[in-house]
């Protein structure tokens, strides 16, 4: 298949996905806080600016009638031109979903924390923070969660580069018969951390 055909087919498929307007209840409650919104395959998608996020989450999650109060998931997404934080909200005991997303600049992404509304957001925000470099302002415990303390950068970003040198792994082959398989664990301590290892 040539690239042009491929592209044409993709556009055709994209056109088939019909975006319906937001349901009245949500559109009214949020007013002009929404910068983009629509219903796709029965799922409500809302994009809000970072400064309106706290309000939007509170309204959709708790203030409207039959609110979407189950925060199922929170994660970051690297969209190449921006960093996104995506909140998956559901009505309790139902499959009706609202996806709230906020687009942040790559330079200094900052967004208010959702931990005041859901304690669920605590670890999820810590994970998004270390993986994508998003600062969740007002987070009660902004320590790294999963990654080692000495890691450089934010590894889930698309422009993150695998480090050439690693303090504990060398490029030496694991076995002389398999010269391509590298990654022997260093026995000697990395420079500058000799004392630490001895202890």
């Amino acid at each position: 298949m040539s690239e042009e055909q491929d592209k044409g087919q993709k556009e055709e498929e994209a056109a088939r996905q019909v975006v319906e307007p937001l349901p009245e209840q949500i559109a009214e409650a949020l007013g002009d806080r929404v910068s983009e919104g629509g219903v796709l395959d029965g799922v409500v998608h809302i994009t809000v600016p970072a400064e309106e996020l706290a309000d939007a989450l509170r309204i959709v999650g708790f203030e409207i009638e039959n609110s979407y109060s189950h925060l199922s998931d929170l994660c970051g997404v690297d969209r190449a031109d921006c960093i996104e934080v995506v909140y998956h909200l559901f009505r309790p005991m139902s499959d009706e979903a609202v996806v709230v997303r906020v687009k942040l600049p790559r330079g200094n992404p900052q967004v208010p924390t959702a931990t005041e509304l859901w304690d669920t957001a605590n670890w999820a925000e810590r994970e998004a923070a270390e993986m994508y470099g998003v600062t969740f302002t007002g987070h009660p415990d902004p320590r790294p969660l999963l990654l080692p303390e000495d890691i450089q950068g934010h590894p889930m970003r698309k422009d993150w580069e695998y480090p050439e040198e690693h303090p504990y792994l060398s490029r030496e082959p694991l076995h002389e018969d398999f010269p391509d398989v590298v990654g022997r664990v260093r026995v000697e301590a990395p420079p500058g951390r000799e004392e630490e290892i001895e202890e």
């Binding site: 993709k10 996905q17 796709l40």
Partner: peptide, 11 residues
């Protein structure tokens, strides 16, 4: 396998 541009959250 080349899906269309989009996203899905499956529970």
């Amino acid at each position: 396998l080349k899906p269309v541009v989009g996203e899905v959250f499956e529970r």
